[in-house]
């Protein structure tokens, strides 16, 4: 009896601790971040190594990086997911090989992606320190997330659609396009959001692929500084940059919260839809 009571108390305390920490983190960031946050901060270029001025070029660079990552990774990921679910038997060697290597890819630390991006995109392919190098590196990182969610979405599309479409003499491609992908759409969208979130949060993989330059990027061959790299730089290398860093951190976290909330909402809708269609 007393053991049961003790466990109950401990578990409630833990939950309280986690929620309390979350609220503390959030208010801490709001209090410090709101000091500097303003429209001007969002729309100006950074001055004095970021101590004053704004973050416009940095937000732009971040957006370009994420965009490149998603434009490259989404089609590749969707194609891979479709192959795994619709065009290979689950026990085929090729399918297993692909799934296994994606599992490994998902657990590769981001700093390793940074090393790889530097060696492969920057030097080997000669793209240099550029948004393109950074975006492609992020694409490699986001790929397993996109594939995993797409596979899940497609696997849960009812098999009856596949059989009924085949019985009507439709190609697999047509069944996919008209029936399966629309059914899996919310799951695909949720995965896309998660991928964007992952790419937007990344720092370590970008330091030596897309670089530090905080000027407004003019093309994707320019070096550019991501928001997360900006926070890191202000906190570690720029004395007196804390106020600016707080504001940038708030912007980044709010952006990511929005994206993650959309992803969660889509996932919930998708799961509800599944229950209704059963």
């Amino acid at each position: 009896m007393s053991k049961d009571f003790l466990a109950t108390v401990m578990i409630w305390l833990t939950a309280l601790l986690i929620s309390g920490f979350f609220l503390y983190l959030l208010t801490d960031m709001l209090i410090h971040g709101l000091d500097r946050l303003s429209w001007a901060y969002l729309l100006d270029a950074p001055l004095d190594a970021g101590r004053s001025g704004g973050i416009a070029p940095i937000v732009t660079a971040t957006a370009i990086l994420v965009l490149i990552a998603i434009i490259v990774a989404a089609p590749l990921g969707l194609a891979t997911a479709v192959l795994l679910t619709e065009f290979t038997r689950q026990k085929s060697h090729f399918g297993r090989f692909v799934e296994r290597s994606l599992d490994v890819l998902a657990s590769v630390p981001s700093i390793i992606f940074g090393l790889f991006g530097n060696a492969f995109f920057c030097l080997f392919l000669g793209l240099g320190f550029s948004l393109l190098s950074g975006g492609l590196t992020l694409a490699c990182m986001a790929l397993p997330i996109l594939i995993r969610s797409a596979v899940e979405g497609l696997r849960s599309a009812p098999d009856e659609y596949r059989l009924a479409a085949a019985a009507l003499g439709m190609t697999r491609g047509a069944a996919l396009l008209h029936l399966l992908l629309p059914t899996a759409a919310p799951a695909l969208a949720a995965g896309l959001m998660l991928g964007i979130g992952r790419a937007g949060a990344e720092t370590a993989a970008l330091i030596f692929t897309s670089g530090y330059v905080d000027r407004m990027p003019e093309s994707w061959f320019d070096s550019g500084r991501a928001l997360s790299v900006h926070i890191y730089d202000l906190a570690m290398n720029v004395p007196g940059g804390d106020a600016s860093a707080h504001a940038a951190a708030l912007v980044l976290v709010l952006l990511l919260f929005t994206i993650n909330s959309i992803a969660m909402g889509l996932t919930r809708r998708w799961q509800r839809g599944r229950i209704h269609s059963l």
Binding site: E160, Y161, L163, A164, A167, G169, T171, H178, L179, P182
Partner: peptide, 21 residues
């Protein structure tokens, strides 16, 4: 070509399968 075969031999399933259209 199974598509031609299946066009000539239609099939109805136990549970109705209307597409979500």
């Amino acid at each position: 070509d199974v598509r031609l075969l299946r066009r000539d031999i239609g099939m109805i399933f136990q549970k109705p399968v209307p597409f979500p259209l």
